[in-house]
Design a protein around this nucleic acid. Structure first.
Lengths: 216, 216
DNA sequence: CGCCTTCGGTGACCTAGTCACCGACAGCGG
DNA sequence: CCGCTGTCGGTGACTAGGTCACCGAAGGCG
């Protein structure tokens, strides 16, 4: 009788809440699925079980910026926003790999918010955390140079010193343009800090990169 | 026996909550008071009664950007953040004129959150609204040209077609640099859309300015 | 009246974003 | 194995915006 509510990093919920939630079926979605788009009505409250979802903001010119990533055990703040304030999504969410998630219908969400302290706390904390993330992002976009943001994302997202992504994808992550990223990466490669291959960035000099990430 | 809880645009609170809150004394603060600064510990939950507070984010270089303004009847989200997530302020709040506000101590705030649905709802909605504002701001900073942001702020903040502010202050509002604002304003004045005086911007052609505010 | 502070204007320079274009490299069907 | 095609990355030229240094003009005040 293993249930998804065991897996998720949910806080202590009441017995009644757990029963309610366990009635919901987790859904599996393949990589690249668009979970929601700007202007779409909110369907319910999303809890991630496996995989990761990237949430982007798209500008009128088509340029995009990564707002945040939703990791397992977290909820999607965008959906909460819609459920509480009544406004539609303004971001776009895409699964970054195969993912498993649970969709809590609006009615059940509101019921849980009203009667379960643990659930409310969970939602509120998620909210507060995202807000902080957004403020940091705003700070970065407004005040930090591209080179520093680039260094940061490379260090954050690399696996075993390698980031598997195209220049265009990296540009979206840091909210810049592809050409700019290409030029910056090129400059760093010429300094021996990185090694570039098609769709792949390999970090050669972590220390210097860490210094660059902190330089304003 | 008039009480401040009547004035504030608070939602329906329980009798018990109102009694608790009415025990708190509103405080008057003069123009230019710094309510909190980055790194400061959170004192409590703030509810505005009169006046307006501007909340800024300051970058490492000293450049600033206006995050949002807190109007009467609203609460300060930064304080909520600190109370819920435990993190310190990262913005700076300054009263834009003489203001009156109530400071709810942390313990009372947590009690109210736990036992009063109306209060919780009030806090949650404020949160959701600020989140939306922040996303819009992020979108603007990341994707909108300075000229458009300038036009927007002029239209938003003018009184009877006049904005009383120095170029430096306007620069902070739109997250740009003083020189850039000066040059843009100058360009708009040369086109006859504005009339400039020391510490004062007068709008001469609303229609054109509105078009500029919408042009991406 | 003269001093000082704040405000705004200017030129030079650098970083970043945009546009147009093009060559290099898979992947795939024939 | 070859050639087609779509993606990826590189480049030059231009524009917008931010930074720096500096300076003159306007207003406040003793």
């Amino acid at each position: 009788m293993s249930n998804w509510t065991d897996i998720a990093a949910l806080p202590e919920l009441s017995e009644r809440s757990l029963v309610r939630l366990s009635g919901l079926l987790p859904m599996d979605v393949p990589k690249g699925t668009v979970l929601f788009q700007p202007g779409e009505a909110v369907k319910g409250f999303v809890i991630m079980l496996e995989g990761r979802v990237d949430v982007f903001l798209t500008g009128p010119t088509g340029r995009e910026i990564l707002l945040y990533a939703v990791e397992p055990g977290q909820s999607c703040v965008q959906s909460t926003l819609g459920l509480m304030g009544g406004e539609d999504y303004s971001g776009e969410a895409i699964t970054r790999g195969p993912a498993r998630l649970v969709l809590v219908p609006k009615e059940m969400f509101l019921t849980l918010m009203g009667e379960d302290d643990g659930f409310r706390d969970f939602v509120f904390r998620a909210f507060a955390k995202r807000m902080q993330t957004m403020m940091h992002l705003l700070e970065k976009v407004a005040f930090t140079r591209v080179e520093a943001r680039l260094a940061q994302i490379l260090l954050e997202r690399c696996e075993a010193g390698v980031l598997t992504a195209t220049h265009a994808e990296i540009a979206v992550m840091i909210g810049s343009a592809r050409e700019v990223v290409s030029r910056r990466l090129d400059a760093l490669a010429k300094r021996g800090i990185l090694h570039l291959e098609r769709g792949r960035v390999e970090i050669r000099d972590f220390e210097t990169l860490e210094v660059l990430a902190e330089t304003d």
